[in-house]
Design a protein around this nucleic acid. Structure first.
Lengths: 357, 357
DNA sequence: CTGTTAGCGCTTTCAC
DNA sequence: GTGAAAGCGCTAACAG
């Protein structure tokens, strides 16, 4: 039997297309001899559609495996059901816990997460912000790079009606939505804890001065010492850029003091890890010669055989959840709130947690 | 002066809209009295547009702060320049390093990353896959949940022409694009390393049998022992579901043997952490009474004062990069490759790395 | 060199 | 109860 050239040329391709190309409203409409709008309504169970056609439509949609083309809907509705999240660094457990909080809350409300890491580079942060805007995320949740100074690009987002919620690393001028965790109480508790243990010389390895969190730690530190009438020795307050090298320099400085500290409070657990290792290498007995208290209370510290005695819990996961909840508010009731110029601002209270070795 | 009700009602709102609504091609065209397509072409520096109009257009676009509406472009072109990444868990450093590799390569090629965590739940994995499809990601990179058995939903993606690249936790039937790291050589090296140190009783805490990686470890383990003519004692091979409890059970089992091991190879660094802690609590001197070698070589191990002696490097970041590179290939030359039914499959070689305490 | 037109898939208003 | 038509913003084939 001879093959007609039409078949040879077109049938296979046609079949592929038929199997390949996802069904559309149009296609369903064509097959059922109804209009596109009827199909659309039927699928949305619009009351005005007769039971008969409605079931027919549903059935055919099922058969054809119809799935609405979300990109069309996004485009039409000007919404993407995606929120952007920009973090300095996913490899810090603090942030991976935070994004988990964000993601889970988002998922619960059928939002997706477009993720980007700034790696603490303001330029990259800017660039990622721009592509998030290009993708028309419905909102942006961000924890700032450690020395972001310029926040102009976030105002830009306003034009596209993309609300921004800051978390943890928030901008200094607090005219914004944010959630953060106030370190003052936790640090004060840390100081009190160490004093109660008999320490007189308590050092603080603080972070970069650009971070609000650095200021907070300093305040908690001085407040607690003042309360106990202990004079503050600024030689005991050093700072690190959070790199291993920076922390080691800070440690060197402290151990070189003629009257060195017997306890050290570190900016966070990673700094503590570096500091403890440095101390160990310099033959200090951890938590005997030199005690440590840290911030963040990450799971990782629970695996050390000489962990810090305690760590200030900052609730990263809860911060993430809260940030996403605020975002949902803004997304649903954004307009009215904007009129009033109100800001959602949540401050969680940090709390010192003891660590069992 | 009396206000006309029109103004009262509409002017403010109108102004807001005017300031708010982003410029479109249409708007530029209207102001310049040219057609929309001319504007489009001018902005794309299409050669056929006169220098004069081109500069005019560019200038006005600049002034109006024109930015193309990507959702429209996505919709029109059927491309989103977004790739989906599904991971079991971001809080495992292995995966956060991997996603960093993916993200950086993606960014370099102007792709974005839609991120989702399965938390090792096959159902959640399925759901996330579905929403990724809804969002019409251009491709999907995934590391499977630890007991995913059903891969039907990935075939579904074919219909939408969404290529899938597996990495690290890949499906057993290897008819797919993937990149993984073969554990056999690394584990064999680990065994040899321990034998050279004088160990005769070397245990293996392996992972869930559903993982290909578990099989690989077993093979590397037996191969190396065979090569040294050491008989394999199956009592020395136990398994964990990767939870802390599971690992502790495994340790209990090993330490209860009448002839217990003097060295243990663990499935990964997290298992090692749990195992080491368990051993320490049971008064074993780490790396004296009982030596450890692990897999993954995560930065975290370098902070322990008694880390495993060595760890098998699995190159998570490189795996991520490679997976994304394969994805880019598929995205650009997908059709031709699909015809040929070829698969991109990359296997990196694992390698034992010593850890300095 | 530039304009006209059609269309991507869907929602929605208006009309019958 | 259903259809026709417009439109979201952009691209591209076709026509001058």
């Amino acid at each position: 039997m001879q093959q007609c050239s039409y078949c040879v040329n077109f049938t296979p391709a046609f079949q592929i297309i038929a199997m390949t190309k996802p069904a559309t409203l149009k296609e369903i409409a064509r097959r059922l001899n109804v209009s596109v709008s009827t199909v659309s309504r039927a699928l949305h169970d619009h009351p005005s559609i007769g039971l008969r056609t409605r079931t027919q439509v549903h059935q055919l949609a099922q058969e054809l495996n119809y799935e609405p083309n979300k990109t069309a809907i996004f485009f039409k509705q000007g919404k993407t059901f995606t929120i952007g999240v920009i973090l300095p660094n996913l490899s810090e457990e603090f942030f991976s816990m935070a994004i988990t909080g964000i993601e889970q809350t988002a998922l619960k409300h059928s939002y997706n997460v477009l993720m980007g890491q700034s790696h603490d580079l303001p330029e990259l942060e800017k660039r990622i912000t721009a592509t998030m805007k290009d993708h028309r995320v419905d909102g942006l949740i961000i924890s700032l790079a450690k020395d972001s100074k310029d926040f102009e690009h976030f105002n830009q987002l306003d034009k596209y009606n993309i609300p921004v919620v800051f978390f943890d690393r928030i901008p200094p001028q607090k005219t914004a939505h944010y959630v953060s965790c106030n370190l003052r109480p936790g640090i004060s508790q840390a100081v009190q804890f160490l004093i109660k243990k008999g320490h007189k010389r308590i050092a603080l390895i603080n972070g970069p001065s650009s971070l609000l969190a650095t200021k907070e730690r300093m305040e908690g530190y001085t407040a607690a010492l003042h309360a106990k009438k202990i004079k503050i020795d600024m030689g005991l307050v050093v700072s690190t850029d959070l790199s291993t090298g920076g922390t080691e320099d800070a440690m060197k400085q402290l151990l070189a003091l003629k009257n060195p500290p017997t306890a050290i409070i570190t900016f966070n657990d990673y700094v503590a890890l570096d500091a403890i290792r440095y101390a160990r290498r310099h033959n200090k007995k951890i938590n005997q010669d030199l005690s440590f208290v840290s911030c963040a209370n990450l799971p990782i510290t629970h695996y050390l055989d000489t962990p810090p005695l305690a760590s200030v819990e900052q609730f990263p996961r809860e911060q993430g959840e809260k940030a996403m909840e605020i975002m949902l508010q803004l997304l649903t009731r954004g307009e009215e709130l904007k009129q009033k110029g109100q800001f959602f601002q949540t401050e969680l209270e940090s709390r010192l947690e003891l660590i069992e070795p």
